[in-house]
Design a protein around this nucleic acid. Structure first.
Lengths: 314, 314
DNA sequence: AATCTCCATAAACTAAGATTATTCAAATAA
DNA sequence: TTATTTGAATAATCTTAGTTTATGGAGATT
């Protein structure tokens, strides 16, 4: 590995002299003394074994070798300036990329709004959203492919102590019925009423499904007595199924805002039953946190929810 | 003028770490200790206010900012390498430009051969030949437009002490006659015979003409008694005139080698008359001498003539 | 658990680069 | 011409950035 025969400072001095036509003026421009530039140019000439300036007359003129070197000098210094600008932009969030992760539900209904707000504030930062399972999202955060993520399920224990897990908001999983369903008229259902319903659920692999099952079980229900009409793998499909009167379901409220407003889906209240899951923000503490990631965490996330007040619409 | 936020050494270290994936290996590669690279990267990170490497696991991984910087880093270092190569080429005469000057005669008959030899040795150095009057050539050498020149005439006195003037070779100005001329049979002419000839000469502005006139006068001849048939401004034109039998002339031997060999021109000897002029090499001592110029002066010029032995054919 | 590897930190040392002061040469002015 | 000014080179001192040796600590490896 060869040593570099010159320094950026020397190139800067070379450029200044070439521009000013004088060692002294270059020295003034660079806020150093004249001997400093003389010495540096002498070093440069010695190391490259060339003569760069003809110092004969009143002003310093470039030799052929000097002109040749100056060309590269300009290019190199320009690249340096560009690099600085690029880094500055990155620091001031005028560039760069933020990669956020989410599981199905948050990825579909929450993240897009957050990203929208972020992009509104920092249009020059490009944002990538990766929607995966809770587990895969966790691993991606662990190995740095994702800067930060919001998940609703339980992480494998090995990941739990590798990642920073911050409770973010609680997400209610509401019992929804077709608007025309007989039970839609009742103010409040009883737990036992659930056994009378036909359910359209997520497939049993899904984290959200597991969460719902566990919560129902914890509240004393026998989930095996619940009638499952069909299992689908998309919330949108389930929503359509419910709207079509095919059955009931537990769905995240964030996913049915529009339908509730339009009245095409009915949200039922069940006495003594609160199906909620904690949405958690996960990051990798042992990794560098980009400015964009910081910003997202500090100023974007709180605008949508806090631990005390659950998710609110905008 | 902003200070540069990084040094080439830091970029070199950055590149090495990125390539090796480890601070330690980079240190080994660069023949420094590991703390040295640690410190330099820390400085770099501090100055740019970014984190460049994730030092978490076994190997150092680039952050987004690090990758961004690395891109510029590669470009900059490549430019540096290229600059070095270009300078090296210039030093080893594998590039660059040599500008030589000459007056009419040497420029037409001598220089092309010299340049040919030079180019044969250094094909990558481009050579430029500028043929001008002695005076203009002198000035061009003075202000650096020409690296070195060969002239046959007298320089203005102000230029004489500004330039380095080295006697190079003597150039015989031979009396030439048409082959069929009556006097071409005589072994040796007398000075008086010159008055019987019709001369075809260069125009009176020409340095060569002035030199010839002065030499003839110095040897006791009355130049006004010489009959001048016509004055032309090109040696080639004069040669043609002589060959066509229009008259005699004093011509540099270097310019009539082919014709003498072919027998189309006759070279006469005149008793007690030797018309010779000194060819001089001129350079500018107060200016940088390029390697190409040095080489031309030291190794090319001597192959064609020296002071002792006049110009020889190759 | 024990060892190893790799990075960070501390303290001492080295050397490159900056400054002040001075000399020298050339260009300008008197 | 001589005197003055301007710009660059040189010398000596000083500052500081960068390197080294030595050491400590956190993760990975056995």
């Amino acid at each position: 590995m060869p040593e570099l025969p010159f320094t950026l400072d020397q190139l800067r001095i070379l450029k200044a002299i070439a521009a000013q036509g004088s060692f002294k003026k270059a020295a003034d421009l660079l806020y150093v003394t004249q001997p400093a530039v003389s010495l540096q140019i002498q070093n440069l000439e010695k190391q490259l074994e060339i003569t760069i300036f003809d110092r004969g007359g009143r002003k310093a003129l470039l030799t052929e070798a000097g002109r040749l070197l100056l060309e590269y000098c300009e290019r190199i210094l320009n690249q340096c300036d560009e690099a600085c600008k690029a880094i500055e932009d990155l620091n001031s969030l005028k560039g760069g990329t933020l990669v956020v992760g989410a599981s199905q539900t948050t990825g579909t209904y929450l993240m897009p709004r957050m990203i929208g707000l972020f992009r509104q504030k920092y249009p020059e930062v490009s944002v990538q959203l990766q929607v995966h399972s809770t587990r895969r999202t966790g691993w991606s955060v662990a190995n740095g492919q994702i800067d930060l993520a919001i998940i609703g399920g339980q992480l494998p224990s090995d990941l739990e102590n590798l990642l920073q897990i911050i409770p973010y908001a609680s997400d209610e999983l509401a019992l929804v019925l077709p608007s025309k369903h007989v039970l839609s008229n009742k103010k409040e259902l009883l737990k036992e009423d659930l056994y009378k319903l036909n359910f359209v659920t997520l497939d049993s692999q899904s984290t959200t499904r597991k969460v719902v099952d566990k919560l129902l079980q914890d509240s004393g229900l026998d989930i095996h007595r619940l009638k499952i009409e069909m299992e689908l793998n998309s919330l949108e499909a389930i929503k359509n199924a419910v709207q079509s009167g095919l059955g009931a379901s537990f769905l995240p409220v964030v996913s049915i805002e529009r339908e509730l407003e339009a009245g095409t889906i009915h949200k039922a209240f069940v006495a003594d039953l609160e199906v909620k899951r904690e949405l958690k923000l996960i990051t990798n503490p042992s990794r560098y946190t980009s400015r964009a990631s910081e910003e997202f965490k500090k100023n974007i996330l709180p605008q949508f929810a806090s631990l005390e007040s659950p998710l609110r619409k905008l």
